[in-house]
Amino acid sequence: MAVITYRDALNRALREEMERDDSVFLLGEEVGEYDGAYKVSKGLLDQFGEWRVRDTPIAENGFAGLGVGAAMVGLRPVVEFMTWNFALLAYDAIVNSAAKMYHMSGGQYNVPIVFRGPGGSALQLAAQHSQVPDPWYANIPGLKVCAPATPADALGLLKSAIRDDDPVVFIEGELLYNVKGEVPDGEHLVPIGVAEVKRPGADVTIVAHGKMVHVALQAAEHLAKELEVEAEVVDLRSLRPLDTASVIESVQRTHRAVVVEEGWPISGIGAQVVDDIQREAFDSLDAPVARVSGLDVPMHYARSLEKLIVPGPEPVIEAVKHVCYLD
């Protein structure tokens, strides 16, 4: 086991898959000479050359569509968006083209492509650079959606995404790139659509994904220490397919659940998870399920308000106390 950053884990995934399969190539803004805006693609241009590590113009719909076309004839493009906010310009290529092609060609043209980049808020980037795109893609049949929280999952899920025969939306955490964690040596694949318990606990289930897994873990440590409440943290890892069974299994043991997400509350990922819980584990519940989400406003620039909008451990702790009738 080596301890590496989330950024290096993604780099390793790209490198390993490009070495393994000549049809894998990376394209996007600044991915080549600049080594990537977040340095995820560091060194890849030198190793693989410009046809496999392609610096693109700032034209998201154009280069995402280019990726779709290349994938339709058998290449395996990895399209990097500098952030998912910019990918809104490519929503047409992702939703109208990539997600529909296999279906509307009657199963003739699959699109083995990965769209990846950082999502969510970082530090004082204001309204246009701080959005959580997760539900915009999880809503769409034809796409798969991953949102890893740890270096090991970033490595294993990205490798699986590149090998997948369908379009995968891969949402990284802008504030996770420097997070360190243990990563298995050798080949490491994490299947898409399988959640993982990141912290076992008997008293309450906290469901989270991406950056919020770390928030949930911080909240769980506090709850254990201060209130002797042992929270189980279930990391969804993938948002589509969604591993409902793992969530249900946990809730059936703990009888209480808090669902956390960074994005907006209305029609959010949490709304889907809560629906699954009420439908499949209604009789196991000892309290209504609580949701914690980002506040329902565009992001403020001011740090004081940004901290209020993005969920930290405090609202999660409060929500757990509520479902445990401790407040």
Binding site: G62, L66, G69, G74, L75, S97, M104, S105
Partner: peptide
């Protein structure tokens, strides 16, 4: 024959991608 695309303009970058794959 690669479609058959319903959104005006959306298939032009797809054709670019096919061209990219040919050169690749």
């Amino acid at each position: 024959f690669m479609g058959g695309h319903g959104i005006v303009g959306t298939h032009l970058p797809i054709a670019t991608g096919v061209g990219y794959a040919i050169r690749y």
